[in-house]
Simulated scan of single mutants.
Amino acid sequence: MAVSEVDLGHLHRCVALAREGLADGDEPFGSVLVDAAGQVRFEDRNRVKDGDETRHPEFEVARWAARNLSPAERASATVYTSGEHCPMCSAAHGWVGLGRIVYAVSSAQLVQWRQEWGLPASPVTPLPIQELVPGAVVDGPAPELVEEMKQLHRPVS
């Protein structure tokens, strides 16, 4: 399935959350969990600035869903996110049994940008979501949002 106009609306909210995180001194990532009826059930942004590198919004989505949704509700939900899941978040998504994932930019794009800017590599090898969760339904990137996300990730000089 391609990224639809409805998907883009939710991805724009993810980008707004990423911008909010960046404004608060954090990394620019945001995620939204939407149920099968199209209702936003949970949203969050990155919160790693205080040293807990596990405070990714995709991980928080999985934790919230495990506590608040039935297995059937989780399987029919969609996770929208500004950046493709890291391996930790992909694993959490798979273990909790969440449904479709839609992302604005891929891990490969983020790696390429960091290399262009001369930044160090991530301490965790970036992998496509399906390498960790083979049955995952994943759509992205959304070309309409790539340049905006690149600007959010660009280091301040």
Rank of each mutant, 00 (worst) to 15 (best):
Y80Q: 04
N68F: 02
S82F: 05
D52I: 06
A37R: 15
A77Q: 02
I101V: 15
A36Q: 14
W64I: 02
E116N: 11
L33Q: 10
W95I: 12
Y103H: 14
D44F: 13
V32R: 02
Q112W: 14
P120G: 02
G97Q: 03
E27W: 02
P134N: 13
A62L: 05
A62T: 03
A36L: 11
P126W: 02
R13G: 08
E73Y: 06
Q109E: 14
A18E: 01
G83C: 14
V133K: 06
E144H: 13
K49T: 14
N46E: 15
R45C: 15
A108S: 04
G135S: 12
H93K: 05
G135I: 07
I101C: 11
G135T: 09
D35S: 04
R45Q: 14
G135P: 06
S90M: 02
A36E: 12
G97K: 03
R41W: 04
H12R: 13
A108C: 03
L119G: 00
V102F: 09
H56P: 01
G30E: 08
V111S: 01
Q130I: 09
V15Q: 05
W64E: 03
L132I: 13
W113L: 05
A72K: 08
K49I: 12
C89S: 15
P141Q: 10
R45F: 15
L69W: 02
L110A: 11
R74Q: 03
D139R: 07
